[in-house]
Amino acid sequence: MFSNPWRAWRHWRRQRFLRRYAIGHSLWAQIMRLPMFVGLDAVERARLRELASVFVHDKVWHPKETLVLTDWHRALIAAQACLPGLNLDEKRLQGWRDIILYPAPFWAEHEQVDEAGVVTAERAVLDGEAWLDGPLVLEWQTLEHEAQRRHPHRSVVIHEMAHKLDMGNGRANGMPPLHPDQSRPEWTETFSRAFENLQTRVEHGARHLSLDAYAATNPAEFFAVASEFFFCQPHALHQHEPAVYAQLSAFYRQDPRQRLPHPVSF
């Protein structure tokens, strides 16, 4: 089957790991019934289960306050975290190890530096954040609410994992490391145009937006929000931002519209 002894050994080692640590079939079947996973074929589900099982095992989980961490917490987060990486190099899901999980939205404080160099501390209530080379921070209340919705249009986990992928070039700027067959100028032009159009519509108080207004914050947030829509509401994203959808499809090596054939509203 394998002509390369190294590949054969790696395959054997992965299979031994999965026999011991794979997410249980019953639990996995529950997760695969959630809307964003509908339409994955048997091979994709098996690949995702493998990635999610490794993710659960390799990450260090830190439940906070009153949260009691269960297999459901880990598996649900891992499945969503690994969905964007389903057809990417597995190394893109690595390079960091800690997941901090709060029971509810949490306070975070960050320093902001303005154009004049003045540093101010800002506090905000968050449902997730991703640190460069650091932890993924999430809160369960929002994740659980998203999992219960029949037609979710967002995923905090996918949003924060998009930031992690974006940081593959050293910082979150809306320009993740692209594949060799992707055009950097085309990506830049597509996302810059869509971002500027959204900013203009938000500034003028438009009632109907192609993406959540939060996407107009900066290019990094635009990429993260667009990634949420790509996996949760692909038809809506394609309808309003077809060029952005095409770029994301080329980057993630996926086409969720083919998995979710019936558009849903939100």
Results as ranks from 00 to 15, higher is better:
59 K>Y: 12
47 R>I: 10
161 M>E: 09
11 H>D: 11
165 L>D: 06
165 L>N: 08
136 L>S: 11
264 V>K: 04
58 D>I: 15
236 A>G: 13
88 L>I: 06
223 F>N: 05
260 L>M: 02
254 Q>S: 04
25 H>E: 13
87 N>L: 05
126 L>V: 07
237 L>M: 14
215 A>N: 02
123 R>N: 10
182 Q>S: 13
223 F>I: 11
128 G>R: 07
165 L>V: 06
155 S>M: 04
138 L>N: 00
218 N>R: 04
183 S>Y: 01
30 Q>E: 14
232 C>I: 00
131 W>N: 14
210 S>L: 06
191 F>L: 11
66 T>I: 15
66 T>W: 15
228 E>T: 02
13 R>S: 13
2 F>M: 05
264 V>N: 04
180 P>N: 15
229 F>P: 02
49 R>A: 09
87 N>S: 10
222 F>K: 14
265 S>A: 04
186 E>V: 11
232 C>A: 02
251 F>G: 02
183 S>F: 01
246 A>V: 00
98 D>F: 05
179 H>T: 09
57 H>E: 12
19 R>P: 01
180 P>L: 10
88 L>G: 07
184 R>K: 05
244 V>R: 10
208 H>V: 12
46 A>N: 11
108 A>F: 11
168 G>N: 08
116 A>W: 13
5 P>Y: 00
179 H>P: 12
26 S>M: 07
103 P>H: 06
75 A>F: 12
27 L>E: 06
139 E>N: 01
121 A>S: 09
22 A>H: 06
263 P>A: 00
257 R>K: 01
67 L>M: 06
184 R>N: 02
184 R>H: 00
153 H>A: 11
25 H>M: 03
140 W>Q: 14
36 M>V: 07
188 T>P: 13
42 A>T: 08
44 E>R: 03
104 A>C: 12
245 Y>M: 07
67 L>H: 08
86 L>C: 01
28 W>Y: 08
